[in-house]
Design a protein around this nucleic acid. Structure first.
Lengths: 220, 220
DNA sequence: TCATGTGAAGAGCTTCACAGCA
DNA sequence: TGCTGTGAAGCTCTTCACATGA
């Protein structure tokens, strides 16, 4: 795809962080903000924020700033969080439970419709108010409700099977935590969050800092 | 920093995935591989893999390929996983437990030295063989052992305090899962993994696919 | 006057095309 | 011959500088 009319991925990744900041500002009773203020505590430059927002329209008032509630509504609409957004969690280990619990208690914009596993010891239980169902019931759940995305938090050896269950149920967006490269399929969007690979790449920077420190010590 | 001699961040993020692929190949008894083979099932192009490796040296043989074990050793050395790599986990909720367990059982290159929390109900217990200590003991642990990085998995309201404890203990690399922007500090490297923000950005793409589907249906 | 919105310049990263070497 | 290693070209994204308009 050519670079035209397309929103940069990096912009899309930042939108939720603007949203969170706006939530905080609105909670504090602040009605008008600026790209400068949004810049503080998010780590992005004011120019970048303005450009990001400009991809979707002109939401501010020149010389004044942005209305916080108005901008929040706009961003919610852009992301698609303005309507009921149902997701499912596939794989009820510690990671799956953590994500389920977080979204139920802290994320008002997303509804965890159900969680799925194959372990009979877990199936039938509940995580807060979310039922844990057998994976064989994923398809019927997806038929009854409009499920926008699946979070895949199963061990590597079950990733392939979990992926297949999700795709067969008609869900076409997957947030994959299994350390496995899922096959590319047309119309299926997969976002990989490979936490252990990421940890290792962080260790690269730790090693750099470590070597630098030793070098400075050696000079003395 | 200017773009010279610097390894692209994106290259560093891919190294662990090459490492994992090499582990698989070596397990299967394969001694020689090619950028083409490394390309399959990792999702990166062969050219990109060759360029990534070339930042660190010439590890292959022209016309032949790469020796799998040799290349693994080289990558381990580059990342800094060739020596004992100790990390700590700060925050023993479900996410902290998930990360601790995964690294103990599945990641032979990293050692979880200890986990820390403030909850007396958890302190003193063990996650597999990893002791859960009170956060006040982080400093002494870091003094005794060479801790390369800390994984921060506490709720948002404790992120600031957890960050401070880590920095004060002398650890300068942090893998932060709390949905909070930690303050920039000189000599401290923070990598943010904001899972709920990421989920929301994924929902943006889900919304795009959803609208597209509805548009196609409307045409009929 | 002040903060937004935006073309243009620049930096970072990927892809291309092929030279180089076992 | 075949696959690595690499300058050059191209693409994406960020930063700059300023025109724009409440």
């Amino acid at each position: 795809m050519k670079y035209q009319n397309m929103t940069p991925q990096s912009t899309v990744r930042r939108l939720p962080l603007y949203l969170r900041k706006l939530d905080h500002l609105i909670e504090s009773g602040i009605q008008v903000t600026s790209s400068q203020e949004l810049s503080s505590r998010t780590g992005f430059t004011a120019e970048q924020i303005r450009k990001d927002l400009a991809y979707f329209g002109a939401f501010g008032t020149r010389g004044k700033g942005y209305n916080t509630k108005f901008l929040r509504e706009k961003i919610l609409k852009i992301i698609g969080l303005d309507e009921q957004t149902n997701i499912v969690v596939v794989g009820v280990g510690h990671l799956g439970i953590a994500i389920t619990r977080y979204n139920v208690t802290k994320n008002p914009y997303v509804n965890v419709a159900a969680a799925f596993d194959i372990d009979p010891a877990i199936v039938g239980k509940k995580i807060l108010d979310v039922e844990v169902l057998h994976i064989s019931r994923l398809k019927e759940t997806a038929k009854k409700q409009d499920i926008r995305a699946a979070v895949l938090t199963v061990p590597a050896e079950h990733a392939q099977a979990g992926f297949q269950s999700i795709v067969e149920s008609g869900i076409n967006v997957i947030y994959n935590f299994a350390p496995v490269k899922l096959p590319a399929m047309k119309g299926i969007y997969v976002h990989n969050a490979d936490l252990s690979a990421e940890l290792q790449s962080i260790i690269y920077y730790a090693t750099m800092l470590h070597k630098e420190k030793n070098k400075i010590l050696a000079k003395k």
